[in-house]
Amino acid sequence: MTDSDLDSNLEIDTLSAFKCGTIAIVGRPNVGKSTLLNHILGMKLAITSRKAQTTRHRLLGIHTTEDTQFLFVDTPGFQQKHLNTLNKGLNKTVTQVLTEVDVVLFVIEPMKLGEADRKVLALLSDKPPTILVVNKSDLMGDKGNLLPLIQDFDLEFPFTDIVPVSAKKSLNLDELLHTIRKYLPEQAAIYAEDELTDKNERFLAAELVREKIFRLVGDELPYAVAVEIEKFEVVGNLRRIFVAIIVDKDSQKPMLIGKSGEKMKQISTEARQDMEKLFGGKVYLETWVKVKGGWADDERALKSLGY
Results as ranks from 00 to 15, higher is better:
residue 109 E to L: 15
residue 141 G to K: 08
residue 118 R to L: 10
residue 150 I to E: 10
residue 185 P to V: 00
residue 119 K to D: 11
residue 132 L to C: 09
residue 143 K to G: 08
residue 171 L to E: 05
residue 131 I to R: 00
residue 191 Y to E: 05
residue 108 I to F: 06
residue 183 Y to T: 07
residue 117 D to K: 04
residue 199 K to E: 02
residue 188 A to C: 00
residue 139 L to F: 12
residue 181 R to F: 06
residue 171 L to A: 10
residue 154 D to F: 06
residue 139 L to K: 15
residue 123 L to D: 12
residue 120 V to T: 12
residue 118 R to P: 00
residue 188 A to L: 12
residue 181 R to A: 11
residue 152 D to C: 07
residue 169 K to H: 09
residue 189 A to Q: 06
residue 173 L to M: 04
residue 151 Q to P: 00
residue 153 F to M: 15
residue 153 F to I: 15
residue 116 A to N: 09
residue 168 K to V: 06
residue 195 E to Y: 11
residue 139 L to D: 15
residue 145 N to D: 04
residue 129 P to E: 12
residue 135 N to Q: 06
residue 116 A to Q: 14
residue 150 I to G: 04
residue 151 Q to V: 08
residue 139 L to T: 15
residue 159 F to H: 10
residue 124 L to C: 03
residue 171 L to K: 03
residue 151 Q to D: 13
residue 140 M to C: 10
residue 191 Y to A: 05
residue 148 P to S: 10
residue 158 P to G: 10
residue 115 E to R: 15
residue 114 G to R: 07
residue 160 T to D: 01
residue 143 K to Y: 14
residue 122 A to M: 09
residue 165 V to F: 03
residue 181 R to Y: 12
residue 128 P to L: 00
residue 110 P to T: 07
residue 159 F to N: 08
residue 180 I to T: 02
residue 147 L to R: 04
residue 154 D to M: 08
residue 169 K to V: 05
residue 164 P to W: 04
residue 200 N to M: 09
residue 161 D to G: 00
residue 196 L to I: 13
residue 132 L to A: 13
residue 142 D to K: 12
residue 132 L to F: 09
residue 148 P to M: 07
residue 146 L to Q: 05
residue 160 T to C: 08
residue 152 D to M: 11
residue 162 I to N: 08
residue 183 Y to K: 05
residue 149 L to S: 05
residue 168 K to E: 03
residue 123 L to T: 06
residue 194 D to Y: 03
residue 137 S to P: 10
residue 180 I to V: 15
residue 120 V to A: 09
residue 122 A to G: 13
residue 121 L to R: 06
residue 176 L to I: 01
residue 126 D to A: 15
residue 151 Q to L: 12
residue 154 D to Y: 13
residue 120 V to Q: 08
residue 164 P to V: 01
residue 181 R to K: 14
residue 112 K to E: 08
residue 116 A to C: 01
residue 172 N to K: 02
residue 176 L to Q: 01
residue 148 P to A: 12
residue 187 Q to L: 06
residue 124 L to K: 08
residue 133 V to T: 12
residue 140 M to Q: 11
residue 194 D to L: 08
residue 148 P to V: 09
residue 183 Y to M: 04
residue 177 L to I: 02
residue 132 L to V: 09
residue 136 K to R: 15
residue 114 G to S: 12
residue 199 K to L: 05
residue 162 I to E: 01
residue 185 P to W: 13
